[in-house]
Amino acid sequence: MNSDIPSTSVERKVEEIFKEIETYIKSEDFDRALELIDENRTYLQQNADMHHQVLLNKHYAISLYRKIKDTYSKDKDTDAFVELFEKHRSYLEVHVGINEYKRLLDIYDRIQKKKIQGKLKIIIPVAIVLIGVLVFSFVNFESISLPNFSMPNFFQKNTGESPIAEEPSADESIDTPSNSDEETDELPSDEPIVDENVHNENEPNYILPSHSKELTLSDIEGMSSQDIRLAINEMYARHGYYFGSGANQRYFDQQEWYVPDESLRDASDVVNNFSDLENRNLAFLASQERRLRNQ
């Protein structure tokens, strides 16, 4: 607590802030509730007791969940919903209930499916027209005066037609471009994925190497839900997240590798800096922590 302010005054101000936050939540003004939390986060982290610290996270998660959900159900703004959900996805998965997160995920999946279907409605007719034009061109090849450009290599290969001068002949092999840079829907390999930019030599003694390898069940064998929760907090701490007063801050202050940044007080800002590997590991640890907690 701040020694310059009487304890009763601090407690009174904390209670007033929370009452105002709860008033906005009850009136479903979630934008204002989130703004009020952000405006007073530093003061509350420094002066609120543990009960209010937990309550603050609960209010923030509820307000964020309802704001994102209402963006879709009331405002019908699917683009805003997708933007908010993608920005706060990792935070929501950890801090809201399983059923609430699943509702948002179902809405997100439906929106993405409709977008794909909408693109297919445009692409498929265009593709059909192009195929029809190509077929017609080949059927009437001899009667059509071709423009002065080379036929694509794959047509030369299939039809046996001689290429136009300065193009490779049909007998020459045709290199197929590598698809290593293309996006795929395949699931990640079961083999551990190691970040080549991370040096393992003299690496700090982390709870889990969630920044440098794909975690599996074998990595968390024997760990409790509390252990996994601490490993999740470690991911934020590695990026300098400032936990404020409390057990988490005291624990990480004792770690030689921890360099806190007091400007990093919003978990969603830290998650935005996570690598793809860290985001996958965060989702994995969050699901396993809930599984152990619900056993």
Rank of each mutant, 00 (worst) to 15 (best):
S7V: 12
Y43W: 12
S212G: 15
N279M: 13
L64C: 11
Y43G: 05
P125H: 03
L104S: 12
K58M: 12
R238N: 06
E191L: 14
I5H: 01
I37L: 06
F81R: 02
V94Y: 10
N197I: 00
T23N: 15
K13L: 10
E182I: 06
H51F: 09
G222Q: 11
T8Q: 12
E201D: 10
G132E: 05
I37C: 05
N40R: 12
N158M: 15
Q254S: 15
A237T: 01
Y206V: 03
H211G: 06
F252R: 07
I124S: 14
T216C: 12
D185Y: 13
V135T: 08
G222T: 11
F154G: 01
Q45T: 07
F136Y: 10
E278V: 04
I122W: 04
S224G: 11
E93G: 08
V271D: 09
S218T: 09
Q255H: 02
I228N: 03
N57I: 01
E35F: 12
P260A: 14
S287C: 06
Y108S: 13
E262K: 13
D190S: 06
F136V: 09
I228V: 08
K26R: 08
Y91V: 05
Q255Y: 03
I116A: 15
Y60V: 02
W257S: 09
R280F: 11
T8K: 07
D195P: 03
E35A: 10
R290F: 08
F252C: 05
D261Q: 05
Y101A: 05
M223R: 02
E93A: 10
I116F: 14
V10P: 01
E166P: 00
T216S: 15
A286G: 12
P192T: 06
E15K: 15
Q254K: 13
T184L: 02
N200I: 04
S143A: 07
S263Y: 02
L277C: 05
H239C: 04
S224Y: 02
D227I: 08
A80Y: 01
I220S: 08
S7W: 00
A61R: 09
L277R: 09
E22T: 05
Q226W: 00
L55C: 02
N2Q: 07
L217Q: 08
Q156K: 09
E11T: 01
R293W: 02
S137G: 00
Y108N: 13
M1I: 05
N99S: 10
S263P: 00
D269N: 13
T8S: 13
V139M: 13
T184M: 06
K114L: 13
N148C: 00
N272Q: 15
S9M: 14
I131T: 03
K119A: 06
D4W: 06
G246F: 02
S268I: 11
P188W: 07
S90C: 01
Y206S: 08
T78I: 00
E167D: 11
N281W: 03
H211R: 14
L277Y: 07
F136R: 08
V259P: 00
S173M: 11
K67C: 03
S224A: 01
I164V: 10
E20G: 04
Y72H: 14
V126M: 07
S173A: 07
L134W: 07
S173C: 14
P152L: 04
D276T: 08
A127I: 01
R32G: 00
I207R: 09
S9R: 13
L44D: 14
Y101S: 01
I17H: 04
S73A: 11
L215I: 07
D175F: 00
I37V: 03
G246K: 02
V194E: 12
